[in-house]
Design a binder for these strands. Structure first.
Lengths: 140, 140
DNA sequence: ATTTGCTCTGGAGTGAGCTCCAGGGGGCAT
DNA sequence: ATGCCCCCTGGAGCTCACTCCAGAGCAAAT
């Protein structure tokens, strides 16, 4: 109750950077780099100065990874994190950011489907051509 | 019939690079760069030395653009073009390349959908939180 | 005691995919 | 004939998202 910002003993048994790396599929370098650029702030260090990720950090990381995987640029992820720092008053803005990104992702998926049509057409043309070839090679 | 590789008069009234740029949405710089790296070979030049794109070039470009839009790396697009140069015998390989890319794209779309679930969950949590806030601000 | 293996920091390097620029030219409108 | 606009080439520069490295520390295993 007195030491509000003290290191909690529970912080010291979380996974190390290597374990997190294996778990989430980002390299240790990338994890450290995310911290450097402020996507993941101040992961607590143990007595030896090594990172120990808390459940909190891992939760944040999970969302960040899905944001990246759906193509959100790091700058926008940074904006999102900045909103978190701004406190509960920014929740509406965070929601808007996520909703915008969600829609953008749906739009991109639709575009992918449209773009695939052109490729599918080309695939069909090759299949037809090759059928022809087969007919020539195995007549009768 | 004698001059097999001569410039065809029909080549000289195709669109210029600026017109193609407007039409397909790639910058003139990008169009020139695609040519430089061999994705689009030797677009014919008119008397003034300016590019005049043929229907052939535009068709190729359309496919290239859809390949890019669906995330194919330039190196692989280059492989595809190399197969074209290799002649009709490479058609089976071209088909395979396109089919592989098609499947990869479908897989990526499925992954996007899965990744969105995590973001959707977060959106829901914010919506619930904000409903709560509204209830507090407009009690009764 | 030393080797092995993980970690640390800060800074430099990399690769993909463009994008910009200098220096120049053709062709048309005023 | 003077702009103006678009085009040319070759090369340099840029952004993004990592990735690597040097030089060091700690800790368990041999």
């Amino acid at each position: 109750m007195l030491a509000v910002m003290e290191i909690d003993a529970a912080d010291l048994d979380g996974p190390t950077i290597g374990q997190v790396s294996d778990r989430v599929g980002l390299s240790p370098d990338t994890l450290r780099w995310y911290e450097r650029i402020g996507l993941l702030e101040a992961v607590p260090r143990d007595a030896a100065g090594q990172r120990r990720y808390r459940a909190l950090d891992l939760d944040r990381l999970e969302l960040l990874i899905k944001m990246r995987a759906t193509g959100m640029p790091l700058t926008e992820m940074h904006d999102y994190v900045a909103l978190i720092h701004a406190g509960p008053a920014s929740r509406r803005d965070r929601l808007t950011l996520l909703e915008t990104h969600r829609q953008r992702t749906l739009d991109r998926m639709a575009a992918l489907q449209r773009d695939l049509v052109v490729i599918d057409r080309k695939i069909d043309r090759y299949r037809n051509l090759l059928e022809h070839d087969d007919a020539q090679h195995h007549p009768g």
